[in-house]
Computed example of a mutant assay.
Amino acid sequence: MSLQKSLQTSPLTDHLVVHGVRLAYRERGQGEPVVFIHGTPSHSHEWRDVAPHIEAAGFRTVVYDLLGYGLSERPVDRDTSVAAQTDLLGHLLDALGIEQANIVAHDIGGAVGLRFALGHPGRVRRLMVIDSVSYDSWPSSTWRKIIDENLDDYSSMPQDDFDALLTRQLAMTVADESLMSGGNLEAYLAPHRSAPGRVSFFEHQVRHYDSKYTEEISGRLGELTMPVRVLWGEEDRWQPLHYARRLTGDIPGAELSVVPGAGHFVMEDAPEHVVEEIGDFLRRPVTVNA
């Protein structure tokens, strides 16, 4: 299967009601389960050039949109914070009949994966975190400025202004900014191409950019016993590389792999490298760290 980039808006094909809310997802393949958790400002589009290759390698892959993101439900009365998404992950695994999974998680998905692994260590076979938020690393300075200046004005923001704002932010996620253009950029903007979509972006995503969800687990990272690999774009402008090194040092037995010439959305800059790293990690024997 070619790694040529698809321009489709979402790779998801199905919907499932989980704990009273509707999640969009795609489940394919057989073998050990691998669950992909995306970041922000994003949705499952970011895994389009990665997950199919892991499926083809003999794994059962599950890709889903977090609650309030992409094609999943955008409820007005449900918490969509990292803590709430962590709880919902457990319900999703239950609904799919998955007792134990390999988790591959990016950005805020990394925080979800880390929290879930700490709370339910028996349910995580291996954990890969990719350019994850951690400690006090988020929100980035540009997101903090948006929160301070725009968060309460979202309802009146014209579509063109919103698109310009989000396009500027998305350009920062890649080392090669030409990748975040054309149909690919449109795919990232697509969930917000309406007034409800813009409101949802601020309410379900930006309002929950809060480092308390990672700072409160920073002292517990040494409790992780499953294999952990930290994968990072060397040129990440939102989550600098020193956070990757700190995470690797605090998690027993963790491995760090740095991708040269890649930014925060490393799967955009270097999809082949990401596929290789995940495949190698999944083939490693599982040993419990003391």
Rank of each mutant, 00 (worst) to 15 (best):
D210R: 08
T13C: 11
I54E: 03
V18K: 02
E235G: 08
A262I: 13
D87Q: 06
P75W: 00
V206S: 05
F265V: 03
Y243R: 03
R168E: 15
T40A: 12
P121F: 06
S2E: 13
G119Q: 07
H43I: 04
A195D: 11
K5C: 10
D163N: 09
G109M: 08
E234W: 11
T214C: 15
T248S: 12
E223K: 12
R123L: 06
V275D: 13
L185Y: 13
V274I: 11
T287Q: 15
A187V: 06
S132G: 05
R78C: 03
S137R: 10
Y213T: 10
V50T: 14
L189P: 03
I217M: 08
D94R: 06
R237G: 11
R115C: 01
W232S: 06
E186H: 07
H43L: 15
G279R: 14
R60M: 02
Q169A: 13
T142Y: 09
G222Q: 15
G222M: 15
H192F: 12
G261P: 09
A57Y: 10
T9R: 10
S132Y: 01
V133D: 03
V199P: 08
R125T: 03
H45I: 07
E73Q: 14
V288R: 15
D153Y: 07
V112C: 11
V34F: 00
V18C: 01
D148Q: 10
G233L: 12
M226S: 07
H192C: 09
S155E: 14
D148G: 13
L256Q: 10
Q239S: 07
E272T: 07
G263H: 01
L7G: 05
A84L: 06
H53T: 09
T287C: 14
L166K: 05
G197D: 03
V63W: 00
L247G: 05
H38G: 02
P121W: 07
V104C: 07
G253V: 11
Q4R: 14
H264L: 05
D87K: 02
P75D: 07
I217H: 08
A290G: 15
S155D: 09
Q169P: 01
F116W: 09
V258A: 11
D153M: 04
D87Y: 01
G68Y: 04
K5N: 05
A195N: 01
V129G: 02
K5H: 07
P271L: 11
L241A: 00
T167V: 13
T214L: 10
Q85E: 13
D79L: 00
